[in-house]
């Protein structure tokens, strides 16, 4: 399940770039989901040995991936940590939901992540837990309302 904190704590990891650079392993890039996320978010291809082929920068190392993709990969392989997901673009949101379907993961948000488009505001199955108040959000509309209440201190 995707667990979301509105706000941050001292334990929230907000330094995903250096953290990822320090801990990533070559084997992570053999994971099909990682390859899919790198392709979708950074428009880049994972080659053998963890080398990345970026259409913009050429051959790069995992250290040069976007903060968003690094955060997604950390969520996949270091799920016990809580990550500052405000630093990730909305294009990471659906992937966070997908990782949350596979395992328990934790993020902290100080803005509303558009996990789904407004056309899907009432679509059930978001399955996101706000850890501040234990509220389970089944739709994006639930999440927006819960976030606004918590962010503005209305419990």
């Amino acid at each position: 399940m995707l667990m979301v904190r509105v706000g941050t704590t001292d334990a929230t990891i907000d330094y995903m770039d250096p953290f990822f650079d320090a801990v990533y392993e070559r084997a992570w890039f053999e994971d099909p989901l990682v390859r899919e996320m790198v392709r979708a978010v950074d428009q880049s291809e994972v080659l053998d040995g963890g080398v990345i082929d970026s259409p913009f920068l050429g051959l790069i190392s995992p250290r040069e991936l976007s903060t968003g993709v690094k955060t997604l990969i950390l969520m996949r392989f270091q799920p016990e940590q809580e990550y500052y997901a405000t630093a990730c673009g909305d294009n990471c949101g659906p992937w966070m939901l997908r990782i949350g379907e596979m395992q328990d993961v934790h993020i902290a948000l100080t803005r509303i992540m558009r996990f789904r488009q407004p056309e899907e505001a009432a679509k059930p199955g978001l399955n996101l837990l706000c850890v501040n108040n234990g509220q389970l959000c089944d739709t994006m509309r639930d999440f927006v309302l819960t976030f606004l209440r918590l962010f503005h201190g209305e419990g």
Partner: peptide, 10 residues
């Protein structure tokens, strides 16, 4: 802001 992977960090 905007999406990840657009080149802000670079």
């Amino acid at each position: 802001g905007g999406d990840s992977g657009t080149g802000k960090s670079y």
